[in-house]
Design a protein around this nucleic acid. Structure first.
Lengths: 113, 113
DNA sequence: CCGGCTATTTATAACGT
DNA sequence: TACGTTATAAATAGCCG
């Protein structure tokens, strides 16, 4: 969302990076809260900013309890965890798609610089 | 988002609740991944569905490591955790705001049923 | 640094299949 | 039951103060 689409890579400018972190951190906190309320789900969330500052969220009591519930799960049911690697191929597909779009757009002269 | 605004309360219909859970769970997973990539943040996320099924996300290695990093934080720096209670007053304000809007809108005859 | 302001991009609610 | 579609609500990028 926003004025421009953002490439999914580390933001170079430290100032922009922190601004984006603050906004998105708040967004995810809200999403986590909404998920727990709407769906009666138990949610635990830990976020460390690039500078190491911690923000945590727990839908129900202490985050320690959510983690203990995780630890109590049989390994087969931990389902992962989902990691960034799972988004790697997704991003590759996105990039491929973007590449195709750019190629198509490049055929229109009026878009050339 | 969606065709209608959703009230922030537990969804009664179990089927709708699970559908919404699945979609929003995936949304938060994506957001968590994006936060970690864009901002080089360390993120850990645990979600238990209403039926108890676990989904977890870790931006960097095992979620256990993220949790250990949390445990290592001095109490003062754990910053919370932010809990649903922190959103209680926010929702109250939203409700108040919505009430004021409705009141204003009600003064326009063409909006009456 | 934090909060407000739009233009845009995203996420998703309600339906279909 | 999970997936696809579309209209609409939300999140947010880039700016400004």
């Amino acid at each position: 969302m926003g004025r421009q689409k953002r490439l999914m890579m580390k933001i170079d400018n430290p100032c922009s990076r922190h601004t984006t972190y603050s906004k998105r951190r708040d967004g995810i906190l809200k999403k986590a809260s909404e998920l727990s309320v709407l769906c009666d789900a138990d949610v635990g969330l830990l976020m460390f900013s690039p500078s190491g500052r911690l923000t945590s969220f727990s839908s129900n009591g202490r985050i320690e309890d959510v983690f203990l519930r995780y630890v109590d799960q049989p390994n087969e049911l931990r389902g992962g965890p989902v990691s960034n690697e799972d988004y790697f191929y997704q991003r590759l597909r996105e990039l491929k798609h973007e590449g195709e779009m750019l190629e198509k757009l490049s055929k229109y002269d009026f878009l050339s610089p």
